[in-house]
Design a protein around this nucleic acid. Structure first.
Length: 210
DNA sequence: ATGACGATTTACT
DNA sequence: GTAAATCGTCATA
């Protein structure tokens, strides 16, 4: 229901807080056809600003790609990497402060058949793709939900194509969460590669790894 | 203009 | 476990 949709206040916080706060919330993508694709966020990573060597905005880098990270809280930062994968992030913090949260995995809840066809590849029938491999990684979930750079700079608070719906009821208790170093940032130096800035739902089969 | 590399995924040994 | 895929971005010149 539209009442559940996250408003600006939900995003106006630091990256560590938002990374935790996003877990258990629903990421919703509405296609031009009107079809709704959605999943519960089960894994996130915080990119904490200009001191963070793993961040695109390290040392205040402000380029055409990273400009989105300096936008207001609640803006989608979608970038393309490895020549083939899109990554979806939620910008947070203050205006002109480049902090964001990478959404790394979802438990798919709506539009699974559509996700399967989008995630299918040569020689593998969509029906053979397991639910747990639909959105269990940052590139996978963007493919499954048809999120690409055309959605970069989208306002998650105001745009009808991409937004967050807040779960009703009890938030996930801390005991159900696990905190680990981030994935794929080994080149960022010991301090930032080992910093525990990744959160995921403990024992959830939909995370990219436990 | 050029070259190195990537917040990954997939297939294969 | 290792390696290939594949191209936009960024730093250097």
């Amino acid at each position: 229901m539209s009442d559940d949709r996250a408003t600006r206040d939900f995003f106006r916080t630091d990256a560590r807080t938002l990374a935790r706060r996003l877990l258990g919330q629903r990421l919703v993508r509405v296609l031009d056809s009107g079809e709704r694709l959605a999943g519960l966020i089960v894994e996130t990573e915080a990119y904490v600003g200009v001191r963070d060597r793993a961040s695109h905005a390290f040392a205040g880098r402000r380029t055409s790609r990273t400009e989105t990270m300096y936008a207001q809280a609640g803006t989608a930062y979608v970038y393309f990497t490895y020549g083939m994968h899109n990554m979806f992030n939620v910008v947070c913090g203050e205006m002109d402060e480049p902090v964001a949260v990478l959404v790394r995995a979802l438990r798919p809840t709506e539009g699974l058949a559509s996700m399967r066809s989008r995630r299918s590849r040569a020689g593998v029938a969509p029906s053979r793709i397991r639910e747990t491999e639909l959105c269990s990684g940052p590139g996978k979930l963007c493919s499954a939900l048809a999120i690409d750079r055309s959605l970069d700079r989208t306002d998650l608070v105001a745009d009808g194509r991409l937004f967050i719906e807040r779960a009703r009821g009890e938030p996930l208790p801390p005991a159900r969460l696990r905190r680990t170093p981030r994935i794929g940032v080994d080149g960022a130096g010991e301090e930032w590669a080992s910093a525990a800035l990744r959160w995921h739902v403990r024992n959830d089969p939909h995370v990219s790894r436990q």
